[in-house]
Amino acid sequence: MSCDFTHTALHGYLDGELDASGSAEFERHLEGCRDCSKALEVEESLRSALLRSSLCESAPISLRKKIRAELDAATSSPARPRIAAWRWAAVAASILVVATISWYVWPRPGSVTRSVAPPPFTAAELIDAHIRSLQPGHLTDVASTDQHTVKPWFDGKLDFAPPVKDFADDGFSLIGGRLDVLGGRNVAVLVYARRKHFINVFVLPTKEPDTPIHPPGLRQGYQWLHWRHQGMEYCAVSDVSVADLHELAQLIYQ
C-alpha cells in the first residue's frame, strides 16, 4: 500500500476524529483510491472483531472492597463532638454512592425512565443485537435505499407497520431493513448509513405514552437513544457521534 492517507487520515476518519472538511476531503479521496477503501475495510473488520470478542475486564468485587477499606483508612476521623455530623455525612455519602453506582451500572434508559415504563429489553440485549448485525451478511434482510421497497417488505412479517423514511438529503441514507429479536419479541430494524458508519433503529409497538428522546446510553463503545412516539418504541444504536445520532432521532421523531 503506497497511499499516504492509508496511514494517517484513514484512522482519524475511522475514529470519527476528522473535522467536517477533513472528513469530506477523505471521502472524496476514498472514491478514487482502491488502497484506501481496502484498508478501511481491513480496519473496520479489526474493529468489529475487537468489539465482538468483548475483551473488557471488570474489577473483581474483592478489589472494590479492598479499595473502600483503604479509602476509609485515608479519610479523616472526625473529632469527638462532631461524630453525629460525620455519621450523617457518611449516611449521605453512602446514599450518594448507591445512587451513583446505580446510575453508572445501568445508564440511561433505565435511570432516565424512572417516571415512565422502562424499555422492554435490556441494554445488553440491545448492544448484542447491534453487534450481531455488524457481522458479515447480517445487517439487512432487504437491502434497498428506497423507502417504498423497504416498507412493504415488512408487510406480513410483523403484526405492526413500522414507519419507514429515508433521510439521504440530511446525510442519513436508508440502506435497508431486517427483522430482529429484542427482549424476546420480534422487532423491525431500519438500517441507516452515516458516512461509513451504520445506525440500527429498532422499532416495536408500545402502549406507553410518548416520551422525548432520552440522553444517550453508552456501552462497549456504542451509544443509543431511546424514545416513544405515536405508539411506537424506538431505539437508535451506533458508534457515530451522539450529535449525529441525535440528529437522526429528531428526523425520525418529526
Binding site: I67, L71, T75, W86, A89, A90, A92, L96, V97, I101
Partner: peptide, 16 residues
C-alpha cells in the same frame, strides 16, 4: 487525609 465530604465527591466522580 481527606474529609468525608471529599470522600463522597471521590466516590461520585472517580470510583465509577
Amino acid at each position: 487525609v481527606l474529609d468525608a465530604h471529599e470522600r463522597a465527591r471521590f466516590e461520585q466522580l472517580v470510583l465509577p
